[in-house]
Design a protein around this nucleic acid. Structure first.
Lengths: 173, 173, 173, 173
DNA sequence: CATGAATGAGGGTTCATTCAT
DNA sequence: CATGAATGAACCCTCATTCAT
């Protein structure tokens, strides 16, 4: 990974998350990265290749986020940990999620294993807690999780903590 | 409103919701509508004008959705009614929301009064129910509402009703 | 057929025949035609579409060249008429053939019916003249015809008439 | 001549003859040769340099083809020998001629001495045979020779031998 | 109201070529 | 000798938009 390739990746993520994938020209990426336009195509084949690469790298980072959760056992701790994720994101994670969330409306972006793994963990937690329908509970929980994610990303709220607390109370966490 | 203008609107909404606003060319709209490309610009000035028009018309329809809620008084009935909205959408409403939800990531789309009115109504309901922090409660409630909306639009699930029920239980509705 | 479309066709034929299809940019065609580059694509879809159109039009013109030959009956007159074709070409026919002859090395350009029709006529002539192997004779004749065509196009010779006569003598025409 | 340089030459000849000089990218040559793109430029300065080199080497090989003819004295033997050349070509000679023949439409490729030497030899043969106009005869003969060459290269025919015989009969060879 | 020819800026991409290593 | 990262000009093509009819 050369420095310039890295620059391209950073600039692309930044621009994709700021104005959207479609609205971002390869020209603007090159400019932002201080690089010739051709270099983008040498490294990533085409614009979509660059996007794919970005998404893969994003997923890899997310996988690492999940590891500490995997080893948790107490159900309420699990749920609390999962629901806290949207409220604790680094900047580049936010950028990644913005791209991801805006793209899923029109592109087949397999969420990879990340959200699935999360849901499985959540479901087992609800099972442990003797919920009558763990399936629907986990589905609903993840739906809310998604809502929280979107809320954070779009509004960047000051009162995130209060929302978080309110959410916890719904599940007695 | 001539018939052709109507065709343009329908085609645009269909395409915007299917492939996205940016990815939809005025040419494809004209083709889909069986109309010359120039006519789009005669009627709507430019592509963005067409979008704006579409969004306004969408909001108008939504306003009508809200009217029956406005007159409700019992707080639990209000909440139930509001949270049921994502689960009861006509086809063109879905198309509208898809466009709206995908666009809000990168465009300044004033949600208009619709969501605000809904939130106000919800907040007063929580107040009536003596929740300690009606503000955060309504904020959280609408966040979940959003999550439900996205969930329905993206997954078009069979088990929507079960999710709906699960959601109701969280608020004892 | 608008005037501008006609200009594009003329410019394209001119440039294709002068520097070759591959080496001719759509930009240069537009410039030569005094037309915006986009117009080429509106009228002909893409560069290859323009070429195809040109080739078809060329073939149509050739078909007309063949008509007077079709009605001939005397075998020697037929052969003489056919072999004279390369030596009697208008400017735009020359341009067409240059494009055609340079392209056939790497592209599947079905010669259309023109050369085939010519060969059939030639074969029947050789049959009438009681040649022992009319098939090979006509094949060879057309091969020489091709050689003459190339010779004329590439060298634009002054002594074309002498060559023509020399050729006739080979077949006692 | 390193092995890699040789690979480049072979790959270039192969690709030039298959898809044409213009349509062949230096990248594709490097790939085909299993070599870095930069190496092409180290060895041949630029793409045209590579072509020139190839053409020179081709001509050198042709010179060797001519040597046995140079020493011939009997005019009919000479003519027969010359006209047989198109029908007896090795694979790489064919590749060379394809490149040569497709390029001559738009590039100044001095045919080198090969064809000239051939023509001179042919002319002297016709002189020996007391043809009234040896000049035109040799010109015409070489024109037919060219036609045969093109015919062989483009059609790769099974019946080449019959054509050859038919051609001989035209000159009582 | 409606068409469709026409534009020109900008889109993604490929190209031959250079240069530090 | 050989690589491969990097360039920037040019490529074909699509876009939203205009305008005469």
């Amino acid at each position: 990974m050369t420095e310039k390739k890295q620059h391209i990746l950073e600039s692309a993520l930044k621009l994709f998350s700021k104005v959207g994938y479609e609205a971002t020209s390869t020209r603007s990426i090159a400019q932002e990265a201080g690089v010739s336009e051709g270099l983008i195509f040498r490294h990533f084949q085409n614009k979509e290749g660059l996007l794919k690469y970005l998404l893969e790298r994003g997923h890899e980072k997310l996988e690492k986020l999940i590891e500490p959760i995997e080893s948790l056992t107490h159900p309420k701790v699990i749920l609390k940990h999962v629901i806290s994720l949207p409220f604790n994101m680094a900047k580049d994670q936010k950028e990644f999620w913005k791209v991801f969330y805006s793209l899923r409306w029109y592109m087949d972006i397999e969420k990879g294993n990340f959200l699935d793994k999360l849901k499985i963990k959540v479901k087992s937690a609800f099972k442990s807690l003797d919920f009558s329908d763990p399936n629907s509970e986990s589905e609903t929980f993840m739906m809310i999780w998604d809502g929280a994610m979107v809320y954070i990303l779009l509004n960047n709220p000051d009162n995130a903590f209060v929302i978080f607390e309110t959410l916890l109370s719904k599940y007695d966490l």
